[in-house]
């Protein structure tokens, strides 16, 4: 089953002549249980693609279907419920409410009216990310790596169909980042979750099954993920041509 279907998606910022197309005519299908990495140079439209795919932003053109539901024309409240119940998010930073505890942050989607999370589910989610004893700690006191693991726990605790991750390791060192990536990989392998991850780090992209490359808002390559060296080479190739064109 395809959990994500995008057809001819374009996103334009600004209305007048100074407006730019951040995304142009992107069509793709993502099968359930796949780990997809999205790469490209800075400004190539990676984050815009993720935001449109996840229902955080509405495309200017084209349609997006998420878990079979049309996102483009959905009303705001329906879209919010869809995100709450079926989607998980991990961003680069500002993932959590700093004044609340780890447990309160992981319970956010549930407290916002999402799927109920039992005490056992909560403790298991914390245990899986290695934060079994830290549930009562205030998030503001945690290290960057620990915070990102809390974010992963929050994204996974409601058993979502798709997890969208925007540079989840961008602010972490390689060892800490590797641990976060493994948690997402485990969710794909163990629970059949689909992960769509934007990254600029070839080592991070290596854990994925499928690699999408963007250049100036267009999808220019879509293949099985090669090793890190090959990813770096392909990324350099699309980034280089992008710079020449500009």
């Amino acid at each position: 089953m395809d959990v994500l279907e995008m057809d001819g998606v374009g996103r334009r910022y600004g209305r007048d002549r100074n407006g730019i197309w951040a995304l142009r005519d992107v069509s793709l299908r993502v099968h359930a249980g796949t780990y997809v990495a999205v790469m490209g140079a800075t400004g190539s439209g990676k984050s815009t693609l993720l935001h449109c795919a996840a229902g955080l932003d509405r495309p200017t053109l084209g349609t997006v279907r998420l878990t079979g539901r049309e996102v483009t024309s959905a009303r705001e409240a329906a879209l919010t419920r869809l995100r709450r119940d079926r989607i998980g998010f991990v961003f680069q930073s500002y993932n959590l409410l700093s004044e609340l505890t780890v447990r309160q942050n992981v319970l956010l989607p549930s407290r916002l009216g999402g799927p109920r999370v039992s005490a056992t589910d909560l403790e298991r989610a914390l245990d899986e990310v290695g934060l079994a004893g830290a549930g009562g700690q205030r998030v503001g006191e945690l290290s960057g790596g620990q915070r990102q693991r809390v974010a992963v726990a929050r994204a996974l605790v409601t058993r979502p169909a798709v997890v969208f991750a925007d540079e989840p390791t961008g602010a972490l060192d390689p060892t800490t980042g590797g641990r976060v990536l493994r948690l997402l990989r485990d969710a794909v392998d163990r629970d059949g979750v689909t992960v769509v991850m934007v990254t600029h780090d070839p080592t991070a992209a290596q854990v994925s099954d499928r690699l999408l490359l963007l250049r100036s808002g267009r999808l220019v390559a879509d293949s099985a993920t090669p090793d890190a060296t090959e990813i770096a080479a392909r990324l350099a190739a699309v980034s280089m041509t992008a710079e020449v064109r500009v």
Partner: peptide
């Protein structure tokens, strides 16, 4: 963040 994770 809250809007993203499901607050109307």
């Amino acid at each position: 963040l809250l809007r993203a994770v499901g607050a109307t």
